[in-house]
């Protein structure tokens, strides 16, 4: 049992002066994902076939590769922001929370790097 006053507990360590950027970037990436996701789904479905050669040929076009890279980066960025909030909501305790947030960030950076590398390899002709 703590003998701190209720007001002291509520005031805690004060405001972190953080959160605006997170909130705003989450909205910006969400808005950007609307056209990107529609473009991705429509272009993929309008390919003559979904076979390996048809898809790699599509990915090798300049604008397709650029948009795919933007799509990968925006998805992973948006997802990182969202999952961070989920962790903050449900994981309590400084240790587990810090570890979970670090892990989530690393995984998203790895996913982004792998996605961009895959697009570049196909687009620049490195894929078999």
């Amino acid at each position: 049992m703590s003998l701190r006053t209720p007001l002291a507990s509520v005031l805690g360590q004060g405001a972190a002066k953080e959160g605006v950027r997170h909130w705003w970037v989450q909205r910006l990436t969400a808005v950007a994902l609307v056209p990107l996701t529609i473009w991705f789904a429509v272009s993929l479905l309008s390919l003559p076939s979904l076979g390996y050669s048809a898809v790699t040929a599509w990915m090798s076009q300049g604008w397709t590769a650029v948009l795919l890279i933007l799509f990968v980066l925006t998805v992973t960025w948006h997802s990182q922001l969202g999952v961070r909030v989920v962790v903050e909501d449900y994981v309590h305790g400084a240790g587990p929370k810090t570890a979970a947030l670090a892990l989530v960030t690393y995984l998203h950076v790895i996913a982004a790097a792998a996605g961009v590398f895959a697009v570049l390899r196909v687009a620049l002709g490195g894929a078999p």
Binding site: K17, E18, G19, V20, H22, V85, E88
Partner: peptide
């Protein structure tokens, strides 16, 4: 506004 600029105090509202 300064006092509310915090991931928990304000931004736990989803």
């Amino acid at each position: 506004l300064d006092a509310l600029e915090d991931p928990f105090k304000l931004y736990r509202c989803h």
